[in-house]
């Protein structure tokens, strides 16, 4: 269950729409891919310990960890991550080309939308639009959107 974040100041996050977040970089390291492959079931007969191309199952993790580096919960979203629990809402990704092991990707993002919703409690949905480029060819690897649920 999420923990509500009590505050006396009403937060209007609508003003955040259009804000460009900081650019982040991430190297698709052999170690990370190897650790990930240790968790996921491997196809029978597979002998490749570390592939040249990361599995597409690894791609959403790159989007998530990359995006987490593009913002600060408190400074950018006015959210106290120590006391409040943020949740993933929705994620959409368009894949432009495979993700290569050992390439460095650049993640750029902006706040695409903010809206309030009500369930058992009120929460804001913050939607980021992102682009991920690889340094292997400077081309887009993924583009998409990721939303976070921020409890008030």
């Amino acid at each position: 269950m999420p923990i509500s974040f009590a505050t006396s100041k009403p937060i209007d996050r609508k003003a955040l729409i259009g804000k460009v977040l900081r650019t982040a970089n991430y190297r698709v390291s052999t170690e990370d891919v190897q650790d990930f492959m240790g968790v996921m079931p491997q196809p029978s007969g597979s002998t490749e310990k570390v592939p040249q191309i990361a599995p597409p199952t690894f791609a959403p993790l790159v989007a998530v960890l990359g995006l987490l580096r593009t913002f600060d919960w408190s400074a950018d979203f006015e959210f106290d991550y120590r006391d409040g629990t943020a949740m993933f809402g929705e994620q959409s990704i368009e894949f432009h080309r495979p993700l290569y092991v050992n390439e460095e990707v650049e993640i750029s993002a902006m706040i695409n939308d903010v809206y309030e919703k009500s369930g058992r409690q009120k929460f804001d949905v913050v939607e980021l639009a992102f682009k991920i480029k690889g340094d292997r060819d400077g081309q887009l690897v993924m583009t998409g959107k990721q939303s976070y649920i921020l409890f008030k």
């Binding site: 597409p56 993933f88 929705e90 994620q91 959409s92 990704i93 894949f95």
Partner: peptide
């Protein structure tokens, strides 16, 4: 990598 796009709701 024949995967083209995804839309996932948690």
């Amino acid at each position: 990598w024949d995967l083209a796009s995804t839309e996932i709701r948690f």
